[in-house]
Nucleic acid binder design. Structure first.
Length: 111
DNA sequence: AGATTGACTAACC
DNA sequence: AGGTTAGCCAATC
C-alpha cells in the first residue's frame, strides 16, 4: 500500500465527480471544475496527477476543453493516449476524424 | 511560511 | 489561424 498521503477533500470531490460520469461519456476539466465551484481546471488536473492511484478514478474520461483527449498521462498525443481513445470509443464515445470527441458525448453535471 | 509548479482555459496580439 | 499572456486553485518543494 500506498505510501501516499490520504486524499484531500478537494481531491475526493474530484474523484467523486468523475465517478458520476456514466460510461460512454466524457467531461472537460472546465465543466468538472465548475461543478466543484472552482474556476481553476488546473486544480482538478492537479488532483488527478497527484492521485491516479485509484482504478476507481476513470481519469481517461476527463478530457481537455477543446475536446482534445489530452492529459491522460500529461501528453496530448502518443501511443498510450491513442489506446485510451480506443477504450473510450469502446465505452461508446464517438470521435471525429480529427481525433476530436463528439460533443454529444460530453457529460453535464446536474445543477 | 513563501515560492513554484501543474493532467487548464480564455483572452489578447 | 496560430502563438503568447494572464488568471485561477490547490498541492508540492
Amino acid at each position: 500500500m500506498p505510501a501516499t498521503r490520504p486524499p484531500t477533500e478537494f481531491e475526493n470531490r474530484v474523484y467523486q465527480a468523475i465517478r458520476t460520469i456514466p460510461p460512454g461519456k466524457v467531461c472537460t476539466y472546465g465543466e468538472l471544475a465548475r461543478h466543484l465551484a472552482c474556476r481553476s481546471p488546473r486544480a482538478v488536473g492537479q488532483a488527478l496527477r497527484r492521485n491516479p492511484f485509484a482504478p476507481a478514478t476513470p481519469c481517461h474520461r476527463v478530457v481537455g476543453g477543446k475536446l482534445l483527449p489530452g492529459g491522460f498521462h500529461g501528453m496530448t498525443s502518443g501511443p498510450a493516449v491513442h489506446e485510451k481513445i480506443q477504450l473510450l470509443r469502446a465505452e461508446g464515445v464517438s470521435f471525429s476524424n480529427n481525433g476530436r470527441i463528439d460533443s454529444s458525448c460530453i457529460h453535464h453535471f446536474p445543477s
